[in-house]
């Protein structure tokens, strides 16, 4: 479970990214966080990720107080959280399967286990026939699927997706959402930041709308309504 209690965060340049935000996200939920640029969406992700520390308030993820996590404990914490970004962030010199394996090698898992898990993941993201291809030989949608595969390879409890469809056409975006739904159905909590209103209206889920650091709407039934 993810819990934000009165979380405030401002940056040294004076921007108040989050103002007394309170949120609860249950295990196994799939939620959208939407809002215009500068509304604090990215800051929520950075705090969940352990990159930023809230100025005040409490952020609990699976009973871990993320804000007061010690520097050297952050890596361990991060293993429970998969991240997907708009710009894919794949290593160009590695093939698809190597990119996925890389995330597991870094954790020091045994080779045999890695090989098995990579096959599973490739099947899940439907890229088995592209296993030996390099990222620049893939389309944007395929690259994003690799990134998702890498993010979930370690079976994290939470998957954070920051504008995963930002660079994709509607057709490919639907594929990505379908994949995220598939992952969600397997028990992973999915938090997806987006400003693709078409998608939000088509695949209705709980939708949290942010504006200027405030939660302006938290709709359980989903869909975008102008405020």
């Amino acid at each position: 479970m993810i819990e934000f209690k009165n979380v405030t965060k401002s940056y040294p340049n004076g921007v108040h990214a989050l103002n007394r935000i309170s949120l609860e996200i249950e295990d196994g939920e799939f939620i959208y966080i939407i809002g215009p640029t500068g509304s604090g969406k990215s800051t929520i992700i950075k705090i969940l990720n352990g990159e930023e520390v809230p100025d005040s308030g409490l952020v609990m993820v699976d009973n871990v107080d993320v804000g007061s996590l010690k520097h050297r404990k952050v890596p361990q914490y991060r293993r429970n959280i998969g991240c997907v970004f708009q710009d894919y962030r794949l290593l160009p010199a590695l093939t698809v399967q190597e990119n996925i394996a890389f995330a597991l090698e870094v954790l020091g898992l045994p080779k045999k286990m890695i090989r098995k898990r990579v096959q599973e993941v490739l099947e899940l993201v439907d890229l088995k026939e592209k296993a030996r291809a390099y990222p620049d030989e893939l389309s944007g949608g395929q690259q994003q699927r690799v990134t998702i595969g890498r993010a979930i390879a370690n079976r994290p409890k939470i998957l954070i997706a920051d504008e995963p469809t930002g660079n994709l056409d509607p057709e490919k975006s639907r594929e990505i959402i379908a994949l995220l739904e598939k992952i969600n159905a397997m028990g992973t909590t999915v938090v997806m930041v987006t400003h693709d209103i078409v998608l939000v209206n088509e695949f209705k889920k709980r939708t949290i709308t942010l504006d200027q650091g405030f939660v302006v709407k938290d709709s359980k039934k989903g869909g975008y309504v102008s405020v």
């Binding site: 050297r72 361990q76 962030r89 995330a103 870094v106 890498r150």
Partner: peptide, 16 residues
């Protein structure tokens, strides 16, 4: 940098 960023993202220890 990219490599390191990804390592950090997936939870590699600093010594690693």
């Amino acid at each position: 940098k990219d490599e390191i960023q990804i390592m950090r993202q997936v939870g590699a220890m600093n010594w690693y």
